[in-house]
Design a protein around this nucleic acid. Sequence first.
DNA 1: GATCGCCCCTAAACCGCTTTACTAAAGCGG
DNA 2: CCGCTTTAGTAAAGCGGTTTAGGGGCGATC
Lengths: 340, 340
Amino acid sequence: MSRVTISDVAMAAGVSKTAVSFAFNNPEKLGHATVERVLQVADGLGYAPHPAARALSLRRSGTIGVLIPQRLSTVFANAFLSELLQGLGELCEKHDLSLLLVPPLDGSLEGAIRAASVDGFVSLGLSSNDRALETLDRLGIPSVLVDADGSVNHPTVNVDDAAGAEAAARHLLKLGHQDIAVIGLPPTRSEVGLTPTAARRLAGYQAALDEAGAPAPQLVTAGISQAAGVRAFEAIAQGKRRPTAVLAMSDMTAIGVMTAAIQAGVNVPIDLSVVGFDDLPIAAWTNPALTTVRQPIVEKGRIAARLLIQRLQGRPVQSPSPLATKLIVRASTAAPRTRR
Amino acid sequence: MSRVTISDVAMAAGVSKTAVSFAFNNPEKLGHATVERVLQVADGLGYAPHPAARALSLRRSGTIGVLIPQRLSTVFANAFLSELLQGLGELCEKHDLSLLLVPPLDGSLEGAIRAASVDGFVSLGLSSNDRALETLDRLGIPSVLVDADGSVNHPTVNVDDAAGAEAAARHLLKLGHQDIAVIGLPPTRSEVGLTPTAARRLAGYQAALDEAGAPAPQLVTAGISQAAGVRAFEAIAQGKRRPTAVLAMSDMTAIGVMTAAIQAGVNVPIDLSVVGFDDLPIAAWTNPALTTVRQPIVEKGRIAARLLIQRLQGRPVQSPSPLATKLIVRASTAAPRTRR
DNA sequence: GATCGCCCCTAAACCGCTTTACTAAAGCGG
DNA sequence: CCGCTTTAGTAAAGCGGTTTAGGGGCGATC
């Protein structure tokens, strides 16, 4: 009782395999009556072409992979990926493509890449020296990079992280903050360095602080989860000089910091200002509502998908210029309580 | 400059294709030296077995599909799927499986099912009369159902929706509410009726109301997005008799209702109590924090993945009993302002 | 009446891998 | 030195589709 194959249909309809294939894919090559009959028989038998066989023969799978440098349980705890998938999904559905989530396999992204039956990849947060990129190139799989370094080989979709970060830092400086802590994103995997986005945001913060002659910020690294933010707050709170403001590179981390701060009796924003990054939907709903840097994540997904689809169709593509970011001031930031 | 195949490696290493295959998959069948040499050559050439060819030959793809009855852009606007994917992802990564997102193709789930190269499906929200289920059966693809009707053919993972809903309604009744509106989930696709979860929750609400002898609730149907919640509030507000409380079947919808209510100058919870369903992380962060029914979504994903993996390994599985739900009382519910 | 062209349809090659069945050579006990 | 078991490797047959090249029939053309 194994699967119905094309041969079964051919036999039952009294035609060749070719005819069956044509009936589905090139009906104009066959007489009208034959097409009808074949389709009828196929339907009766419950025939569906085997996707892997089809992919092998056609040299395309109708699937695009989303290369995710972290474990799914980690990355789905942050709505960033959900937003991106909304954008990707929109375009993919329009072009009858499926999305394959490709996280590291046994810790190795390269292994996961090799094993994935996809026509192309949308890769997240890869730095240009990542070996995964090399693997993609060697296998010749078309790829579009999101949140990456500039790459010569691949179209890349980025936002203006530096400008956004700079605006965030300026906002705090203008409010009068001097003691600022920065909560950075960790490297996504042990073997690679700072994430491209993290590097750019850090540079943005730094540029604003330098320009204002502010002291170097305390730098803590934390994951992208709320729990990581809680730990980051604890790390900061232990320091000898308590900052009056925190710049976080992710909304979820910022929320974790707020949670922990409020829990510890610290008033946000009076005693501690907090700024996030991303402007996820939840940012508008926290209490106090989160001041953060908005980046158009859904749009990023749409653009990435569009570029990849264009590449798959053989059309030339070029990277768009970085998308604009925008500081959204809400209630989690205020002037520090006292300036001495 | 096409892809390096197993033949290329065989030729370069001076052995047969069989030997190359063995070197990767059954090294013990070959001399140690040969294995070494083949692997060396393969690595030098940048060889990776073609996934589709492998899938065709092995009759397994190493991928499990997540059957999603709605468009990705819709469904990812609600954190439910993210949570579920955390659970699914956890188990899948452990077993070296990838996840393929399978939304309807041109509106047809069945078409999407046929086209997906997967070893099994985790299907969301399918009612037992859904034609998609029939398709799954005919193709003989192992499946596990989540949030479905009880099914004889497939293991099913459910939560105790009715009890959760009943608890939510009781909570409102105990506070003194009599005029209650229910915001139901819409059918996921036009051709099917009420979602199984929606039906069970509705039954739960109804049971509590009947028991208390409360009047029949006003019933509005709205999507699972915040925007849908906003529209639902507007629909309710237009009615002649304004309810003092709202039971929503989804947190996002509930949040939309709160947004719209507050926007319209209605005080939540004083003038309007709102109860959600799911207890997504965001529910704790809204202002006021949302009273809602907690269901263990991540755990649901874990269990579904575990069951499916067991089925794929040929081990017998049986549906677990429905997982417990729990009413989480926060700040969005209170006694109605005045009882006449 | 032979030739051509057109319409339908098919045989067979191919996509790239796995695996069964088999062979040649080596090892070994008697 | 012979027959028997291992060892090390191979040829070929799948897996289930698509596609190229071509064959048979038949009406139109010359």
